[in-house]
Design a protein around this nucleic acid. Sequence first.
DNA 1: GTCCAGGGAATCA
DNA 2: TGATTCCATGGA
Length: 287
Amino acid sequence: METYTIKKGDSFELEDIFECGQCFRWNKIKEKTYIGVIKEGVVRAEEHEDKIKFTGKLVDGYDFKKVIRDYFDLNTDYASYKEILKNIDSYMGKSIEYGSGIRILNQDLWECIISFIISANNNIPRIKKIIENISKAYGKKIVFEEKEYYTFPDSVALSKASVEDLRKMGLGFRDVRVYNTTKMIVENKVDLENIKKLDSTEDMRNVLLTLDGVGPKVADCILLFSLKRWDVFPIDVWVRRVMNDLYIKRNDEKKVSKKEILELATKKYGKISGLAQQYLFYWKRGK
DNA sequence: GTCCAGGGAATCA
DNA sequence: TGATTCCATGGA
């Protein structure tokens, strides 16, 4: 058992971080307390008046403080980015006020890929349930404070599952996509460590797009939530809705093309479009 | 019964 | 390139 405590600051709220749709393995245990399973182990995060306390149990060989600081993006100055966005327009100001405690987590690449393949045409509660099912069936058990948790399986472990096995996890039509992508990664047709070394966002995206079940939106989520690429702007039904409601104002939002939204977002938010997208998504979708 | 969910792939013009 | 349709599943 290890602990690490930080000062709270003005850009750190557990609810905003965990409920803004970027992650699927954190659950609210009680008021201002969440427990989550990340790649390295189980972590409890408690919010107090002026500090955040992390308590956890990691698998061997990890530095707790280092894992927490990296995962919660604690070396990034959100206040300065918020200041830039606030000056763009009043909508941005409102959405930042609403989700002022958001931080963009740095999640494990492999887990992020599979999680967002599962997210396609799905809803958040069910996505969480499917990921939980997969972890229970193929992940490693960790006992933390007398309760059992399961890590998300690595690619080798998940490659033991057949398409039929995956279907039993509740994946629906996404079973073949998860199966194929897992196989491509295990067989090293796509090298995840190599993706991390690429320098342009576009190069990274093009590799991700070769994976079955990874299209433009899923690729952008992976780039934003795992690869620190904030110049992307994932467009889903909610983001399309909010961008149409605020700026484009077409009668039928479904007629608004992704290209049109993307051009607008890039012009307005530039290199930090991804952060802007999270504030807008969370603001529109609600807590 | 109908609609919808943090879309992608296949198909066709 | 761009638009349509289908894809399992579960909850509202």
